[in-house]
Design a protein around this nucleic acid. Structure first.
Length: 290
DNA sequence: CGTAGATCCTGTTAGC
DNA sequence: TGCTAACAGGATCTAC
């Protein structure tokens, strides 16, 4: 499940393998993969062929490659991996993968960039960059906690103004981006907070502490090449990260908490699972805002 | 307007 | 053995 560390690993791979190369062909194998590119597959292809890709950027779980060339400047290919998306750099002679959605070929005849996605929640689309180099359609995505311009105190104020639980707030990409189910659970475990704790009652020191845990866990995962809990996530060379060995809460139902030994519990939340320690992360007593 | 729930999608696994 | 149901979950849409 690609979240910020996994997307950053992919971004670094693209920087090494596709920056500076010129596109010679674009094949869209599945329309759903470019559903966010409303002008359609023909336009997607026409506008990309002949462009030269430059250094990839990232915000939260989105990444994009500026694509400048004959058809103009300021265009970018934006990618979101969704649940199971992969961007692989592979030899052009490699037979099409089972879930190959988009194939980008280069004029130098070198390795393709292929978008492969089993569950089709991910996709590619084209957009113009604003004056700061951000795709227009990503204006609503917050800076992420590894961004040097992320404003800690502004985030704490925004969280305290919400009437929801802290896990929901962490998953809201318009407040803080890059966090998904895995790193939300890991951060909350480290901070000893239950995900349904009302945000309005969390103090600034508690939120500052949580933010530090978020940065720690994202940084550690990045250093280990990301998490590959369900083996669908791989870097551009098809290799898995190994942060899954370091998970303390996510996916650990029934295993002893590394701090207190209590059995990690699983609860249903937002149509997914939340993992936490029943002793270190007690449920809030009062009824939630609803 | 802010919050909450439903929805999309397919391969794997669990259970009867 | 074979079928069905549960499960994985990010972003978007809709409803209240």
């Amino acid at each position: 499940v690609p979240e910020l560390p996994e997307v950053e690993v992919v971004r670094r791979g693209l920087e090494r393998w596709v920056s500076g190369r010129t596109l010679s062909d674009v094949e869209v194998h599945h329309p759903r993969a470019i559903r966010r590119h409303t002008p359609g597959a023909q336009d997607f292809r026409d506008r990309l062929i002949g462009t030269t890709l430059s250094a990839p950027a990232r915000r939260g779980k989105y990444l994009w490659l500026p694509a400048d060339g004959p058809t103009g400047q300021g265009l970018a290919i934006i990618a979101h991996l969704g649940m199971s998306g992969q961007l692989l750099v592979v030899d052009p002679e490699t037979p099409p993968e089972r879930h190959l959605r988009v194939r980008l070929a280069f004029a130098d005849g070198g390795r393709d960039l292929r978008f492969i996605d089993q569950r089709t929640f991910g996709g590619l689309f084209l957009d113009d960059l604003d004056a700061e180099g951000l795709p227009l359609q990503l204006a609503h995505i917050s800076r992420d906690p590894l961004d040097s311009l992320f404003d800690d105190e502004r985030w704490a104020s925004a969280v305290r103004a919400k009437r929801t639980g802290i896990k929901r707030a962490l998953l809201d990409q318009t407040s803080i981006s890059g966090i998904g189910n895995i790193y939300a659970d890991e951060s909350l475990w480290r901070a000893k907070l239950h995900g349904e704790r009302p945000t309005a009652a969390l103090t600034r020191p508690v939120l500052r502490g949580l933010l530090q845990h978020i940065r720690d866990v994202l940084g550690e995962a990045l250093a280990q090449g990301g998490t590959s809990f369900d083996s669908l996530y791989v870097n551009v060379n098809g290799e898995s990260g190994y942060f899954d060995r370091s998970l303390a809460a996510y996916g650990q139902e029934g295993r002893p908490c590394q701090r207190c030994g209590a059995a990690i519990r699983r609860e249903s939340f937002m149509n997914r699972s939340s993992f936490s320690c029943p002793h270190c992360q007690p449920r809030p007593r009062a009824a939630q805002s609803s």
